[in-house]
Nucleic acid binder design. Sequence first.
RNA 1: GCCGUUGUAGCUCAGUGGUAGAGCACUUCCAUGGUAAGGAAGGGGUCUCGGGUUCAAAUCCCGACAACGGCUCCA
Length: 615
Amino acid sequence: MNMTDKKLHSQRHSLAHIMATAIKRHWPDAKFGVGPVIDNGFYYDVDLGQNKLSTDDFPIIEKEMKRIISSNTPFDHFDLDIDSAIKWAEENRQPYKLELLNDLKRAGTTSASDIDSEELGLQSDGDSKVEEVSFYRNDDFTDLCRGPHVANTSEVGAFKLIRISGAYWRGKDTNPQMQRVYGAAFETKEKLNEYLQAVESAKKYDHRKLGQELDLFVISPLVGSGLPLFTPRGTVLRDELNRYSQEIRKKLGYQNVWTPHIAKQELYEVSGHWAKFGDEWLTVSSKETKDNLVLKPMNCPHHQQIYSSRPRSYRDLPIRYMETTTDYRDEKAGELIGLARVRSLTQDDSHTFCTPEQIDECISSLVGTVKEFYETLGMNLKARLSFRDESDKYLGDKDLWDKAQGILKNIVEKSGLEYYIGEGEAAFYGPKIDFMGSDVLGRELQLATPQLDFVQPERFGLKYTDEDGQEKTPVMIHFALMGSIERFLAAYIENSKGRFPVWLAPEQIRVITVNQEEETIRFANELKEKALEYNLRIEVDNSNESVGKKIRSSEIMKIPYTLVIGEKEISSGRVSPRIREDLKNGPDIELPKEDFIHKLAHESENRAKVSTLNE
RNA sequence: GCCGUUGUAGCUCAGUGGUAGAGCACUUCCAUGGUAAGGAAGGGGUCUCGGGUUCAAAUCCCGACAACGGCUCCA
């Protein structure tokens, strides 16, 4: 953290306490959980028992906070031994703080991962014995906390309370739910307003809004929630993205396979998925068989059945299958979000079966593929190493896990990508690299993911004959490049602001006629015929509207190239394309209509990022 | 699933106890228009659904469903 970040951090952290102070003054029975600093601000978890805070209370709380701030009170800091701290929590009827302190005393270390050491006032010296915890005191309110704080309440900068939501105590859904009050906070009023405006304007690029405006997908209540339907335009995006995803993996040796959408429950009992996820699946009933059938929620077990259908030699490995196919998961109602979380998700899935020695090379090449794909689409990714934690929800040998995690970490480090470790984020069958994109509000979305799996091949009894004649179990690498097309689109539509490059644009060219004369319409239609020969996506707008209005409509639909056709173009045979602003790569240009079509066909095939008309 | 907010025309929204509104979109007509909205007329809503209160409910109350913001979960 640099100096500015440190100061901002202290300001936000101090504001959390000031907010708690303000709440305590108006609701004396308030019980407090934790109140850490987050991106753009802070929050504090509170429990008012029967009373509930609502955003209607924000003016009261903000007013009180401002009063505290202008009171110029210093942040007073002192330490207590753990037993006195526990006594403090009891006397002040702070059961949540008491629970944390008791846990701390019992554990005797700071290693408990779900405890916010800053909030708890621990001295940050790793796993050493806790003997003392820190407090801060400000006027009439005392709280357990190490800081950092600003010296005086007047130094906290600008803030605004923005949101209130439910949050389980210590993140466990079996615990009581507290209210989480969020505030935005910045050094100055200007920066705060800048942030609030940025959030407001980001909403313009929400994929749900753009999906509606650009006519990409719809959700019909009659079909069901979390079951998006894709329009012709949206389907172009899906198909083109998938074509690219498959093309790029084909180069690595992946071959297409096809598997059905329903399967026997037994398949997933063997894979291990049923025990863990069976509750969240959609079942299928048959009058013809006694089998319990399910709509497939993933594809790995199927691909393994193809692998195991014949004897394999080490000479055959790696064997690589890919399939873009829709899976169904009965996600809980409150968990659905636009296209980012749906009940019908289309994975651009693939599975590699290889020897342990081949793991490094296989995964490294996948990481390279991820970089290439996302670079082409202009999206930034962060790598998350999703590793196991100490819980018992994972299958397979712990030593093997450690080894696998080491391999993944090594690969990511070599790749030069920014990464972080997500402890407890692993799949039950193995560790993975999750490539995280973000939506327009900066929320993380899991996109591409290579995953190592020693467990399923074992459970399915997969074998290959090694060069020493021994039968061995292959390693499986799960890999999806987009993850799911739906979630990818959620991120991509927002990242691109709906301004798709020519190769992806559902409509690449719009031809606008100046009038409705017969020869104008004929010229426009000839242009269309010609473009269609080159597989370009083109529409003619010869509606009885003004030219200005038709151009506006083309702009709103974010169409890359707009051609206005009138007397001038007909007599010269040349066109002057209007190029969407973000694609412009030079001065305005006029060229023979055939050249325009040729250049565009080329631009589309080569997945160009900007217009190539000037080249 | 949990906590909270919201649900009025295809879209964006106004209307807060007294027989439902605007802009855009759509249809028709007039205007033949040259790089971001030409003019006029018209059609379109059991005010999400189901109960309740009331002489009277889009409006108040309860419930369901859905969307949204979080939490939890995410193969």
